[in-house]
């Protein structure tokens, strides 16, 4: 298994390199370093000298990928790409365009993202599986039909509606929790109740339908019929046999997202004023801060690869037939 993991980690290097190339091409296709400088310097009284100075100070005065006039290896190393992309592999994110250290910002902002994303993920998983099992239990009844209709309806509603509606109902009309904001420690609880609830409710429709499909597929298998033939109660059949055997597809969807949880939620963090990495990325995109966008995309990719690796490992834990070699 160790050899397998090492091999997969080595595969990650060219993937991350490719991601770096893509992010450079995509970002600089629509932004030039001159534009970035103008945005950072403000729109008033910006002189060409100031733009040139900013580019030099931030390392954008080199060619992007290939430095023709530079001697030897300098043709590739004296480029924006080399100077910005290579340190990423050592997780050296450098400074944002406004001078703040990105690594420090990530360390600070990952916690609020996690305290929002982890409960949404865990509670959501629990609720979705529970609802899906209930629907599977009541399959082919009006309850199942009504539940599926409700799920489809919930899937069709925009996430923004849940956020704005939730804020209006729970915070504005009922005065139960703050509309937005965030505090550390235990005080975070009252700020997280609503976004977590909305995150869970917003995902119930699609999650429940997905898990219901998995459970129904399992329910039709021979071993379930055998279990029932043994005289086991339906409750036992569902929870002990169907749920356990349905874990592999559940894991496929669930484990892969675990490492990316800390990347945060782009919209919810903005609306609820939670200072996480989701809003950090959105702000960076708005202000065309390439250093932050680059760091977050790289990190997101690295974590996604890690998630896939963890999924593979998890397979071996839930299904003894699978061996990684």
């Amino acid at each position: 298994m160790i050899a397998y993991l090492l091999r997969r980690m080595l595969y990650a290097i060219p993937i991350l390199l490719g991601v770096n190339v893509f992010i450079f091409i995509l970002f600089f296709a629509v932004n030039s370093p001159d534009n970035m400088a103008r945005i950072q310097l403000g729109m008033k009284h910006v002189t060409p000298d100031a733009v040139a100075k900013w580019k030099h100070e931030h390392g954008y005065d080199r060619p992007l990928f290939f430095n023709g006039p530079a001697p030897g290896a300098g043709k590739f190393t004296e480029t924006v790409f080399f100077h910005k992309a290579v340190p990423m592999f050592a997780f050296q994110f450098g400074a944002a365009d406004d001078g703040r250290d990105i690594g420090q910002d990530i360390k600070t902002r990952m916690w609020p993202s996690l305290v929002l994303a982890v409960p949404v993920f865990l509670i959501g998983l629990l609720v979705n599986i529970t609802f899906a099992l209930i629907l599977a239990f009541f399959r082919a009844t009006y309850i199942d039909f009504g539940g599926v209709v409700l799920c489809v309806a919930m899937m069709s509603i925009s996430g923004m509606f849940y956020i704005i509606g939730g804020q209006f109902l729970v915070s504005k009309l009922l005065h139960l929790v703050p509309i937005s904001g965030y505090q550390g420690g235990w005080d975070a609880f009252k700020f997280l109740v609503l976004p977590v609830a909305i995150g869970v409710i917003g995902g119930v429709g699609s999650g429940t339908r997905w898990y219901r499909t998995i459970f129904l597929e399992e329910i039709g298998k021979d071993y379930v019929r055998t279990a029932r033939a043994k005289g086991l109660a339906e409750r036992v059949v569902l929870f002990r046999h169907v749920l356990r055997n349905a874990l592999i597809p559940i894991l496929t969807g669930a484990v892969v997202v675990i490492p990316t949880l800390f990347m945060g939620s782009l919209i919810a963090e903005s609306f609820f004023g939670i200072p996480g990495l989701g809003s950090y990325t959105i702000d960076a995109i708005r202000s065309q801060d390439f250093a932050i966008v680059h760091a977050m995309v790289f990190l997101g990719s690295a974590l996604y690869i890690l998630g896939l690796l963890l999924t593979d490992v998890a397979y071996t834990l839930v299904d003894p037939r699978i061996r990684l070699a």
Binding site: Q167, F168, I179, S180, S270, F272, S279
Partner: peptide
Amino acid sequence: LEKEDIPYWNK
């Protein structure tokens, strides 16, 4: 920090 108008207004 209030990025959105609606929470700002309601608060």
